[in-house]
């Protein structure tokens, strides 16, 4: 089995080196591997450090020791934008769309940086720039209609500000925007949290789209165990700064350890 992401011996504490005590480490020699082209769920109690782990991977959390390897190259201390360009996409916990921007602009911004974004480029190379923009808009339309059908409200209301959408719709838009970036690895932080049940099936199909349609790897954090069982092929369980169980979701979630600490049984 080929791995796409390798984390080895990660240590992180939020207090300075001098006062470090064993018990205050958020990560203690945490290591994990993520299989390529699979959907893996990362599960753990509130405050276990799941979001922080995503922050380490995407370069937003500094100060961790250890190594993060992505597709064979080390990304440990790279800037977030460089990590994104290498192919790691991220869905934040919460809504996080650009509220003042139109729905279409939100989609287009999801595509990785390009020469078009140099100031006055569109004044100097008008045709080229317009053609490129058009390409991005077509891509946005294609993704939206593939995910939500050809008469979806996102495309119909594309010139309206994204902030007008309901929370659930903003979440769907954020998922669709992620697909604009052609990432190889998607990090999804609680995609279904706070979302009305009517949207969950659409979120599930967006994730399947990422995975089976474009053969991309998905690592998702979830508290919805039904969703985890339904979506994931692998499950990682995080506790006390480590991954303490890994395997098929049913096996991991049924193990005594997890039952005791997570489900509180």
């Amino acid at each position: 089995m080929e791995t796409i992401l390798n984390i080895s011996n990660l240590n992180l504490s939020f207090i300075s080196d001098r006062q470090k005590e064993e018990s205050l480490f958020l990560f203690r020699d945490l290591s994990l591997e993520i299989e390529r082209e699979k959907i893996t769920a990362l599960v753990g109690g509130n405050g276990a450090g799941k979001t922080t782990l995503f922050n380490v991977i995407s370069g937003l959390q500094r100060g961790a020791s250890g190594k993060v390897n992505f597709q064979g190259s080390e990304i440990t201390r790279l800037s977030p934008y460089k990590i994104a360009r290498l192919g790691i996409g991220r869905l934040f916990q919460g809504a996080r769309v650009f509220e003042e921007l139109s729905i279409l602009d939100n989609m287009v911004i999801g595509a990785i940086h390009h020469a078009n974004e140099i100031p006055f480029y569109n004044l100097l190379f008008y045709r080229k720039s317009m053609a490129f923009e058009k390409g991005l808009e077509e891509k946005a339309e294609a993704i939206l209609s593939e995910l939500f059908g050809s008469n979806n409200i996102f495309w119909e209301d594309r010139i309206k500000p994204a902030g007008n959408l309901s929370f659930g719709h903003q979440r769907l838009l954020a998922m669709a925007r992620l697909l604009m970036g052609n990432y190889s690895l998607y990090l999804l932080d609680e995609p279904t949290a706070g979302v009305h049940v009517q949207f969950i099936e659409q979120i599930a199909s967006a994730i399947r789209h990422m995975n089976s349609h474009s053969h991309k790897t998905v690592l998702l954090i979830e508290h919805n165990m039904h969703f985890v069982r339904q979506m994931a092929e692998y499950c990682l369980y995080m506790e006390n700064g480590k991954i303490i169980a890994k395997g098929h979701p049913n096996d991991v979630l049924a193990s005594d350890q997890v039952q005791q600490s997570y489900m509180g049984i």
Partner: peptide, 26 residues
Amino acid sequence: YLVKSPFGRVLKSIRSDELSVSISGR
């Protein structure tokens, strides 16, 4: 022109949510 351009679009998104802009590769 700047406001309507792709450059302006990035600036406006920075105004709205800086972190989301950097994790989209800018």
